[in-house]
């Protein structure tokens, strides 16, 4: 326990626009949750005026009702937070619904 170094890690925060036509539902939501499960430190998602939710929770991600073109604020805190946020932002910006035929 190195409690002495509870240096106030500043929150890393970045905004991204949802790239999936279908929004973050079904397949795209599952992709977000799967990536979130591998990220350390963990990331949260929220709408610009909203409350942050755990990106590892499929129910919470669905509950945000992120639609195509919506702004999502991705946040993380701690060592490696930049990298976690970067990976999640990159994913959300993509079209995650591969079925386009």
């Amino acid at each position: 326990m190195n409690t002495e170094s509870v240096q106030e890690d500043s929150i890393v925060s970045q905004e991204v626009i949802v790239g999936s036509k279908a929004g973050l539902h079904a397949r795209p939501a599952a992709a977000v949750v799967e990536l979130a499960g591998r990220l350390e430190p963990a990331v949260t998602l929220r709408k610009p005026e909203g409350v942050a939710v755990n990106a590892k929770s499929i129910v919470k991600v669905l509950s945000q009702n992120f639609s195509h073109g919506d702004l999502v604020v991705v946040e993380s805190q701690g060592e490696g937070a930049e990298e976690s946020v970067r990976q999640m932002v990159e994913l959300i910006a993509q079209e995650l619904d591969s079925e386009s035929d």
């Binding site: 079904a26 397949r27 939501a29 599952a30 949750v33 799967e34 939710v53 755990n54 590892k56 929770s57 499929i58 129910v59 919470k60």
Partner: peptide, 16 residues
């Protein structure tokens, strides 16, 4: 299968 896989994620949901 896709619907079922989504259900698996729900069973494993950490917030639940």
């Amino acid at each position: 299968a896709e619907v079922l896989s989504a259900q698996v994620l729900m069973v494993r949901d950490p917030d639940v």
